[in-house]
Amino acid sequence: MICLRNKVFKFPLGKLPHFSTFTVKEVKIPIPVTGGHLAGQLWQPTTAPPTPPPCPPIICLHGIQDNSNSFNLLIPHLLLSNNLHNTPIYAFDLPGHGHSTHTTSLYYHSFFDGLLSIHRIMKHFNWPKVTLLGHSLGAVISFIFTAAWPEKVTHYIALDNLHPIPRNDPTHGFQNVVAQAFAMETKLTSSNVRPSYTHSEILQKLYNSRGGQLPLSACEILLQRGASKIINNGEPRFRFLHDVKTNIKASFRFLGDTNIEAMARRIASSPDLRVCIVKGDPGEDFEEREKYMKIVGILKEGLGQGCEFHLVKGGHHFHMEEEGVGRVGGILGGFFKR
């Protein structure tokens, strides 16, 4: 089991060229006006290496109802790379996930909340440019941010998902969101007590929710930051930490094909931007693979060698699977070297 908070990790001197330790520190970023905070884990070397980092600081964005522990297996591979050993990495919990504050509104606008979060993180750390590393929903948010503010991003890395799923007629989507929101309001009004589970029950529930593709050991890692422990009648019980309102897909599928293609062309027209897309095989397709590859094609056509596409054997969370995490680590190590 992996548990990280204000820990120092030591490696043999031969593994790293300039330092032998790095730290993982919990960093909370306050949210003014509405209150609360973003919570995340800042990975960084304990000493200042003499060589400049190959890229700006990396911000990691996880998928829906995951948390920043989604990257706990991958980040050490990056830090142990000769290319990224002196690059700060901040993996944070999206609003309503992990240790970040829940929203006071009736639903989450996942894209807008994510875009605000990236800007908030950059302002907090005084990072003028960043590298975005996103998985699933996190990759989609990173896609939108890169299209809207390409001058702030030098490297964009997408794991499995890439862009918003298009819907050329969003009418049904709006109807569905409103219906879900009122159903959630009724549910929370009648009972605001979340169910609790034994450890084995909550582990199995998380495993089932990920389609049985995520190893139980990886589910344990997500639960470390995704569940809280309570004592009920003298027995330990566990509750999920993510806000139940994240079940309402309020910002999904409201963009048409032409909108998404235009965003892809804007990214592709940024000559200094580098893109790495890693797709699981089989992964998880949220649209026809042909549409996915069309956006990949637009990016490759515009960026040329500045855009890479790789297939990695595994499910949707291949970056948390034993074979997949090493493969992704190797791909990204080479990506930053080139």
Rank of each mutant, 00 (worst) to 15 (best):
I2L: 08
L4S: 02
L4R: 01
N6F: 03
V8C: 06
K10I: 15
P12S: 11
L13N: 12
H18P: 04
H18Y: 10
S20R: 02
E26Q: 15
V27Q: 08
K28V: 03
T34I: 12
G36E: 01
H37C: 13
H37R: 09
W43Y: 15
Q44G: 01
T46P: 14
T47C: 06
P54G: 08
P54Q: 13
P56A: 09
I59D: 04
H62A: 02
I64A: 06
I64C: 09
D66L: 07
N69R: 07
L74K: 00
P76L: 00
L78F: 00
L80W: 05
N83C: 14
N86T: 10
T87F: 09
P88H: 13
A91T: 15
F92H: 13
L94S: 09
P95N: 09
G96C: 14
G96W: 13
G98V: 10
S100M: 11
S105A: 05
S105P: 00
Y107E: 11
Y108T: 10
G114Y: 01
G114A: 12
W127Y: 14
P128W: 13
P128L: 12
L133H: 03
G134D: 05
S136F: 01
K152G: 03
V153Q: 04
T154S: 15
H155L: 13
I157R: 03
L159W: 01
N161D: 15
H163W: 03
P166F: 07
R167V: 15
P170F: 13
H172V: 14
H172I: 15
V178Q: 14
F182L: 06
A183I: 01
T186H: 14
K187R: 12
K187N: 07
K187S: 08
T189G: 10
S191C: 03
N192V: 12
S196N: 09
Y197P: 02
T198F: 04
L203W: 07
L203K: 05
L206T: 11
L206F: 12
N208H: 14
R210E: 05
R210L: 06
G211F: 02
G212S: 13
Q213S: 11
Q213I: 12
Q213H: 11
L214R: 11
P215R: 10
L222H: 05
L223E: 01
Q224E: 15
Q224C: 09
A227G: 02
I231W: 03
I231R: 06
N232Y: 04
E235D: 07
E235V: 04
P236C: 01
R239V: 13
D243L: 06
V244K: 06
I248P: 00
K249H: 10
A250R: 04
S251Q: 05
F252D: 07
T258F: 03
T258A: 03
N259R: 04
E261S: 10
E261V: 10
M263F: 07
I267L: 08
S270A: 14
S270W: 06
P271T: 11
V278T: 07
V278I: 09
E284S: 13
E288K: 11
R289I: 07
R289M: 05
Y292G: 11
K294A: 15
I295G: 08
V296A: 07
G302Q: 11
G306W: 00
E308P: 02
H316F: 01
H317E: 07
F318E: 02
M320S: 05
E322Y: 06
E323M: 07
E323S: 08
G324D: 04
G329M: 03
I331Q: 07
L332F: 00
